[in-house]
């Protein structure tokens, strides 16, 4: 077979590596957002491949809401140690402790991540931020560029984006501005899982079916834990669940699932009738444009 043709995952992988190398070469101080969630794990895997046999030429950063699953934090630290990465942590808890931010009445901390993120970018003068966002996740993300400009306040102006042509990414920006770079733009949830399967990538255990004490709120199964507990008529139950997304414990829901392996999950994702954010993210249910509004302010 010559000339050959890449299959779907091969083409997506090659495109992502190209994007990562472009941004790394054109920008002075990149950083990769790493939460231990599957998209950031896959992005890190691709970044390590992009520079092999060299080391990752930039640090990784985690915006820690203070409500993260302990097993995800342990996973994060293990990955950082295994690949000898430089990890920076931007802590929402610090901001709450000293009053720069106040807890929201609904208890969700996802929207609170924006300020610590932007402050950390300014402090370290990062000019490129790799994010694991995918266009299939959400309607506002579907309009996002691969290399996307943020103004000096970290804001996204969706109505005034640069046209993005061929594979020529324009990362030029003025002092104080930065770009967000999304190497997984063209991947779907199913592509991510197929790639995890093909590459044998290990993920935090809570992506796989396990028993957990949960309670139902707004049609989602939330974990019983230090940051979220049943109120009023809500009752705790022990169910077999897994997480489709990994985020703040207080607003990330589990789904009932028996999928214990990547192969099981591939079948589940291919046949699901509910989107991953719809199933599991309370913060995206606030309004039709919740993600757009957060993104405009500088959220990832």
């Amino acid at each position: 077979m010559s000339p050959g043709q890449l299959d779907l995952l091969g083409e997506l992988e090659s495109e992502a590596i190209h994007i990562i190398r472009e941004a790394s070469a054109e920008l002075e101080r990149p950083v990769l957002l790493f939460s231990g969630g599957k998209d950031s794990v896959v992005m890190l895997h691709l970044a390590l491949k992009a520079f092999w046999p060299g080391p990752l030429p930039f640090p990784v950063m985690h915006v820690d809401t203070g409500h993260n699953f302990p097993e995800v934090l342990a996973y994060r630290d293990e990955v950082v140690a295994r690949h000898r990465l430089r990890l920076l942590v931007a802590s929402v808890q610090d901001y709450l402790d000293d009053g720069r931010l106040v807890e929201r009445s609904d208890g969700t901390r996802n929207p609170l991540q924006t300020q610590p993120l932007l402050d950390a970018l300014a402090e370290h003068r990062f000019d490129a931020v790799f994010g694991g966002g995918r266009r299939d996740e959400e309607k506002a993300r579907a309009k996002e560029r691969v290399v996307s400009l943020r103004d000096e306040f970290g804001q996204w102006d969706p109505r005034n984006q640069r046209p993005e042509l061929w594979n020529l990414y324009n990362a030029r920006h003025r002092p104080g501005e930065h770009v967000r770079v999304f190497p997984l733009s063209n991947w779907t949830e199913l592509d991510v899982w197929r790639y995890v399967d093909r590459e044998g990538i290990d993920l935090p255990g809570l992506y796989f079916a396990h028993t957990r004490e949960v309670f139902e709120r707004d049609g989602m199964w939330l974990a019983v834990g230090p940051y979220s507990a049943p109120r009023g008529a809500e009752a705790a139950e022990t169910l077999t669940v897994r997480y489709r997304t990994v985020g703040d414990m207080s607003c990330t829901g589990a789904v009932q699932s028996e999928a214990a392996t990547v192969a099981d999950i591939l079948i589940e994702v291919a046949t699901t009738r509910i989107s991953e954010r719809g199933a599991t993210r309370a913060d995206d249910r606030l309004t039709e444009a919740a993600m757009e509004d957060r993104k405009k302010e500088g959220y990832f």
């Binding site: 506002a140 579907a142 309009k143 109505r159 039709e288 444009a289 757009e292």
Partner: peptide, 8 residues
Amino acid sequence: TDGLRAER
């Protein structure tokens, strides 16, 4: 497909 607030 019309994902932005202004579009809707």
